[in-house]
Structure formats: structure tokens, C-alpha cells
Design a protein around this nucleic acid. Structure first.
Lengths: 207, 207
DNA sequence: GTCTATATCTCGATAGAC
DNA sequence: GTCTATCGAGATATAGAC
């Protein structure tokens, strides 16, 4: 019994995740979610009261997937440059496996985001959103030690993430530009992208 | 007569721009546009056949506002570092005056963007979207001269733009994080942001 | 718990008078 | 060119049988 409940609920949830990530909060269709989950539309309302709540659950899960998974790199004892390299690689690989997630989160942010505004303080308190804090601490320590020169750690974090995420947001433009000159090899470009970002940043902050 | 036409048409267009930028293609409401323009809803269809066409016009205008205005900095004769500095400052100031534009463009990109996909090749041909080309050329020349070291110019452009635009996309998160520690001074943060990005990049690419 | 059938609502679009 | 009134599609949500 319990197992069947979870099973149906989870089928719905997975289907909702796919649909919301793909079409966004407003573009998503409850019917489409029901079809994907291979259940009736009425069940969506049985398990999750309404679209808004379903979305809210999905968003929280997706947000944690991205921001709850790589902070450990800044907890471990290794040179800051190594953490940074691993973070950039890991971050780009993570998004590569879920390329629509950045736009999904950005859409929420751009809509004023009651959902995300309520979420962030809660996650920070619950220590599930530790990346900014840990990154800034480790960067600060690296500056103390003279490993890297002094810059504002929060600014640095934004530069790293911004540079990393932008490609996935702007890919259609990049593609459009590159195809005017030659072939567009996504896989290769992404590998280069990792190297490039690390290269620029590490040279930008070395003592 | 002609003047009255333009006047009403323009009122509609301005109202549509505000509404679409704020709510996006699907979130925008024709009724709201009509209200803002202080005309009847039927007039929207009289001047612009339907919502899609109205959106399309708006998007093109907005896109050009952002990408059609700063490329001249890379046409002029000055050291690459100076062009870069002016570009970063100008870019951030431009978005600061229109902070919702990045999310607006990103939303279009994320929705598969028939509109933008049709637009880009056309603008490139019409020489109204010259930023990537000019930037890459000037960066290439600067590398030849030894002003800066060799990096992939397109990767570099993406890093600059990504770093610049990310703040405006993620501001609610930044705000949330900063408010847990202290006060959040947007104006100051943005001025710092300009300096920081230039600083990291220019050190990242110097010979 | 799951389904069918349907109520209710929102919104883009149009018809037609002036 | 501009308005009022209304249509009709498409979506969320619910009632009620099983």
C-alpha cells in the first residue's frame, strides 16, 4: 500500500520535473504531466493540491540538485586552485547532464520568484545551501596564505558561476554565430570552456 | 492622420514592451497591454495581427538595444584593454538601466526561440549584430601584437558577457545571501562588479 | 486510490456598430 | 480608427461513481 502510494506519487513527481524544466512554470501543462506519468489528471490534484504546489516541490528539488552537490569541494583540504578546477569541471559537467536547468532557475528568478525567495533563507538556515559560504571562506583563507591575491570572494564566485552558466543559457546564439564561420562542435567547445574559465580565473587571481 | 496612427501604434508598442519584458512571452496579457496603452484591446489586433507578432516586434527591438549599441568600442583605434574596460562599464550600465532585459532574452532563448533563431542570421547579414565578429577580430589583433596572450576570442567574449550579465539574473539569490551577513548596497556592489570583472579578465589575459 | 465527466475561468481573437 | 460585446479554445480544478 505504502509502496504503491510512493510509486504513483513519484511517477507524478518525475513527470512534473521533466515538464516544468522543459516548459517552465506557466508553459507546463497538467495534462502533459498526467500523460507522462501514465495516470489520470485528477491524480495530480489528489497528491499535490494544485499546480503551484507541484511546481514548488519541483523547484526546490532542482535547486538543491544544482546548489547542494558541489560545495564539498570547498570543505576538503587542498589548494584553492585545485578546488576551483574541480568545481568548474564538476559544475559544467553537472549542467551538461541537465542543460535546461539553468534556464529553469533563471525563469523562476525573473518572475519575481515568491517560491525562490521563500526557499533561500530556509535552505541557508537548514545548511543545505552552503556553497556561497564555504566558497567565500576558503577563498578568504587562500588570500591569507598568499595562495591568491586579494579580491572580493563573492564577486569571484559570481564571476565563476556566471562564466560557467552563460553558455548554456546563450547556446542558441553561440551556435548561430559559430555556424556562420564553420562547424559547431558542442562537445569540444564545452571541454574548451572548462579549461578556458579555469585558465582565465586562475591567472586573474594569482599573486 | 498619419501622426495619429503612429501615436496610437507607438503607445501600444511601448506598453507591449513593458509588459513583455516584465512577464515574458506567455506571462504577458493582452488586456494589460491595452490598459497600459489606454486603448481598447481590439486595437492591439488592428495594429498588430496577434500576440505573437507583437511579441516578435518587441523582441527584435529589445535585442538590438542590447547587442546593437556597444560594438563601436571595438571598431575604434585604442588598446584592447581600454576597449574592454569601456565595454564592461557600458554593458553593465546599459543593463542597469534595463535590469529585466537579460531575463527577457534568456527566456526567449530557453523556449526554443523560433523568434530569435530567425532573427540572428538576419541581423548578422544586415550587419546589425556585429559585436561577436568585431570583438573577436580586435582580440585576435591584440594577440598578434602581444598586447594580450593567446586565448580563444569567442570563449573570452562569453566569459566577459556571462560574468557581466549573471548578477542581473541571479540578483535575488545574491541579495538573499548578502542579507544573511549584512546590508545589501546594490549601487555599490554594481560599481565593484565593473572593477572586479575588468580586473580578473585583464589579469587573466595579460602576456 | 483511481477514473470519467464536467464545472469554471482566463484569455486571445473577432464581429459588427459607430 | 475606435469601441462594445461576445465567441470559443484551452487550461485548472472538482464532483462523484467505482
Amino acid at each position: 500500500m505504502g509502496k504503491d502510494n510512493r510509486s504513483t506519487e513519484e511517477k507524478i513527481f518525475r513527470a512534473a520535473m521533466t515538464e516544468f524544466i522543459d516548459k517552465g512554470r506557466h508553459g507546463a501543462r497538467m495534462q502533459e504531466i498526467a500523460d507522462r506519468a501514465e495516470i489520470n489528471k485528477a491524480m495530480l490534484h489528489y497528491y499535490f493540491r494544485n499546480k503551484e504546489q507541484l511546481y514548488s516541490h519541483v523547484f526546490q528539488t532542482v535547486f538543491l540538485k544544482v546548489f547542494g552537490s558541489l560545495h564539498h569541494l570547498f570543505e576538503q583540504e587542498m589548494p584553492f586552485s585545485v578546488s576551483l578546477r574541480l568545481f568548474i569541471d564538476g559544475y559544467i559537467d553537472l549542467i551538461k547532464s541537465n542543460p535546461k536547468i539553468p534556464a529553469f532557475i533563471m525563469r523562476e528568478l525573473s518572475e519575481g520568484g515568491e517560491v525562490i525567495r521563500a526557499l533561500i533563507p530556509r535552505l541557508v538556515k537548514a545548511e543545505q545551501f552552503m556553497l556561497p559560504g564555504l566558497f567565500m571562506r576558503r577563498a578568504g583563507e587562500a588570500m591569507e596564505k598568499g595562495e591568491i591575491r586579494r579580491v572580493d570572494p563573492l564577486q569571484l564566485l559570481m564571476t565563476v558561476i556566471g562564466a560557467g552558466v552563460y553558455f548554456f543559457l546563450a547556446e542558441p546564439m553561440v551556435k548561430g554565430v559559430m555556424e556562420t564561420t564553420g562547424a559547431y562542435d558542442r562537445e569540444r567547445f564545452l571541454q574548451e570552456r572548462k579549461k578556458h574559465i579555469y585558465d582565465i580565473i586562475i591567472n586573474g587571481i594569482k599573486s
